[in-house]
């Protein structure tokens, strides 16, 4: 690992947390998009039904929020880029088994 220090200064710390957010965001979106709609009643099991418009609102709102979040993260990360791209580059290194 490039940095052996245990604790970071505030700026690097912030940058790393932003990268954590970048990594987490797709997982959150997967949960909201892939998992949540599968729990909606789809008219096959019982009488309760989800109106298409509300489903539409839900999906598109998540979409807009996800885009906004990605945009905001991009802005934040771009600001840090001058200080070095180490945060972007510290990939999780897979090791040969």
């Amino acid at each position: 690992m490039p940095e052996a220090r245990l604790f970071l200064e505030r700026r690097s710390y912030r940058r790393r947390r932003m990268m954590d957010a970048v990594r987490m965001l797709p997982l959150v979106c997967t949960l909201l998009w892939l998992v949540v709609p599968t729990m909606w009643p789809n008219g096959l099991q019982d009488d309760t039904q989800t109106a298409l418009s509300s489903a539409l609102w839900y999906l598109f709102m998540i979409w807009i929020l996800a885009i906004a979040a990605t945009f905001a993260l991009w802005r934040r990360i771009r600001r840090y880029e001058g200080t070095g791209e180490a945060a972007v580059d510290t990939a999780t290194q897979a090791a040969e088994p």
């Binding site: 599968t38 789809n42 008219g43 096959l44 109106a51 298409l52």
Partner: peptide, 10 residues
């Protein structure tokens, strides 16, 4: 007008 998609297809 209603949500009809099956979970597996989705």
């Amino acid at each position: 007008g209603t949500w009809q998609t099956s979970a597996s297809r989705w």
